[in-house]
Design a protein around this nucleic acid. Structure first.
Lengths: 406, 406
DNA sequence: CACTATTGTTACGCGAGCAAACAAATCCCT
DNA sequence: AGGGATTTGTTTGCTCGCGTAACAATAGTG
């Protein structure tokens, strides 16, 4: 039951039913391809005649294509339908603290080309560099199809309406209108989003095909910080001012170590990669000294995981501690949002065998019901690709989203 | 941007546009009454002819009524439209630990009759008692209109689809199907909901008329426990298994006092009325001893508030402590959900002048942005009526909700 | 009293769902 | 090999309801 917002509603027009049914049909093909018109008619409880008409329209605009006919026990053989992903190109950009990644891929998320360069902090200089690279990529691989847009993810808050980067502390950006600058530069539609939210979107749209619908879940990204993307009712949770989902800054202990945010004992101060490294090095976490300490040691989180896997006791203890606090943070998420699944991304998920049982144990102790305690925890398969897949989703997903009505 | 759930979607039919526009129009009247057809036509950007047709339909089924014509600077005088609330009766029931309240009211939430009796723990015996009382109420006041349904709120988890009470620890109910039992008994549609969620719904639907739309907010109820109702995108947050929104059991300190839930240092163990009373009595909170301690003292939270207002230092200190922890809990809500407003209900809100500045201070220290720190905190005006208004909303709101499409 | 402004109603065209008939393709049985 | 059965996909008329425009009703103005 949803309340109609009388300040921003979309009324229905003569063509509304068609738009709605078109998108439903498109999504049914996406999740059940290959599928025939007759099958669609049964699933939608709609006349076959209408399916024909809708499919014609979708083939016309390049959303679907017709595959081969297929054997059937008897009667006329059905003609299978597929969502067209090949030839629909997307430029995906992942701007990170040290390096920026640019990928040319298609709607399915498969890569055609990938390049990387050192992140330029000044936004306009970065836009200029990106303009060159995007042009070159499209000139080189342009024959693979037509580029439908450009998706960019940043480590920071993004205004969901205008696309402005409100605050990205790691890049030193505040209130940067990168959308207009980029789209003017490359002449393509541009979408910008916060990285963990984009990862959550990727999971929702490119996630397990056919497998259980994922419309209420949380994506937790562990890197230098701890960020989350929350999906409720198939929609991203943004809150009033695009600052929702900061579970990384829920305090686990009032007298814990200080955190970047100014608080004490935040999840992030216990469980970020920086915190794990500092713990391994035998220090207390402090936002002022952490990065210099870690840089001086020359270690990365991957090294700690490797050490732990080769049996190094100190590394194992450091990661186990991280898992303990992460479990407490996840328990908070479970008790407050009750998601159907939590996905953990970031390099720490490479040590899944070590951290999963510990997190499970803490969650079991703190969850309010048995069902909640059994909330599935899933490790992101390819953490390095997650952000780029998210960027791809920013361009692709709107083509499949439900039309906004009422 | 919302993803279409291909397992449970509603496709558009020939009459879908009308249903959508009907509900939009109805809600516009609800928020701007008195309003003329011509005004509606302008607000909806729709032809006046269609407004006439839609309004005719809504008057026919009793949703709207036509008031008097009104003066206008020149031209034909407009005829004002109103939502019909009088004569649309609702039975609202609030089942609490000690007493049960039964109210006969109308769609606007105004009471016609109110009675109360000692709560009967056995669900079926309670249903029998309610059947008698509902029949008597309707027989006595039946001439005031027709009863459109029965709303019931309970202190516990409710399955949103079936209406089963999954778990209400204060009543000792587990998996009780009170909906079918009650609707069979009284022959009216019955809606059951968790109390804080119902309060949140009341705030959303019966809240400030014309004033800013409230579609992302949190209702926090402080009584024997601390419960929350969370509204996101105009919809209640339920989570996977109807267990979402348990901010009362987010630990504020890992080594705090034990809580009913089995954890330690939960918000509820610090800030519930029981916790405040135990603190005033000079004890550490424990779920095993708290209720007996308080009952032995004969004190209620209202007494403590009265004492504090008359200057009693110990009472003031007890409430201030409660406010401190409540502030920490609200800061967690703000950082994770970023609501546009938080409403605090329960008797503690009577001590608003004492608790508000303390909560504000804690929130200011912990919120991640200045805007978040300024999140409005609002005290529920009439805490005693909130639950019954919530029960009324359960019956009334579905008549105004957005049709489910796609 | 004609002119203008505004509200509310009525009439007709057209997009799109809906149902049913029709064409196409394949298997099965005689 | 040929007719019937079965299933898929297309075409055709019908109806609901939006969209536009003309029309009637009501009131003020010069």
């Amino acid at each position: 039951m949803r309340k109609i917002n009388t300040r921003s509603f979309v009324r229905a027009t003569r063509s509304t039913p068609r738009e709605v049914n078109r998108q439903i049909l498109l999504n049914l093909v996406r999740e059940h391809e290959p599928i025939s018109r007759a099958d669609l008619s049964r699933r939608m409880e709609i006349a076959r005649g209408m399916v024909t008409s809708l499919v014609d329209e979708l083939i016309e605009d390049g959303s679907l294509y017709e595959g081969a006919t297929v054997d059937s026990p008897r009667g006329r053989r059905p003609q299978m339908l597929f969502v067209r992903t090949r030839g629909r190109l997307v430029i995906s950009i992942d701007v990170r603290f040290s390096r920026t990644y640019v990928m040319l891929g298609d709607f399915s998320g498969t890569a055609i080309a990938l390049e990387t360069f050192e992140t330029i902090e000044d936004p306009m200089a970065l836009v200029a560099e990106l303009k060159l690279r995007v042009r070159r990529l499209l000139a080189t691989h342009g024959d693979a199809g037509t580029c439908e847009g450009l998706g960019l993810v940043v480590p920071g808050m993004v205004d969901s309406v205008t696309g402005r980067v409100l605050n990205a502390p790691h890049l030193g950006w505040r209130n940067v209108d990168i959308v207009d600058a980029l789209s003017d530069a490359v002449g393509l539609p541009v979408f910008v989003e916060n990285a963990p939210i984009a990862c959550a979107l990727a999971l929702m749209w490119l996630g397990q095909r056919g497998g259980g619908e994922l419309t209420d879940f949380v994506y937790v990204n562990v890197s230098d910080g701890v960020g989350t993307g929350v999906v409720v009712n198939g929609q991203v949770l943004r809150g009033m001012r695009n600052t929702a989902g900061e579970f990384g800054h829920v305090p686990l202990s009032a007298d814990g170590p200080p955190c970047h945010c100014g608080g004490r004992g935040c999840l992030e101060a216990y469980s970020s990669d920086l915190a794990t490294l500092v713990r391994y090095l035998g220090h207390e976490f402090s936002p002022l000294t952490a990065r210099t300490l870690v840089q001086a040691s020359g270690l990365t989180i991957a090294d700690i995981i490797a050490l732990a896997e080769s049996g190094n006791e100190r590394a194992i203890r450091a990661i186990e501690e991280t898992a303990k606090y992460l479990g407490a943070g996840l328990a908070n998420i479970i008790n407050t949002l009750s998601p159907s699944q939590i996905c953990i991304g970031g390099e720490i998920s490479e040590a899944w065998g070590l951290i999963e049982p510990i997190m499970r144990g803490i969650i079991a102790a703190r969850a309010l019901t048995d069902i909640a305690a059994a909330t599935p925890l899933v490790a992101e398969k390819a953490p390095s690709q997650a952000r780029l897949r998210g960027a791809t989703t920013l361009v692709a997903a709107p083509r499949f989203a439900a039309p906004k009505i009422a």
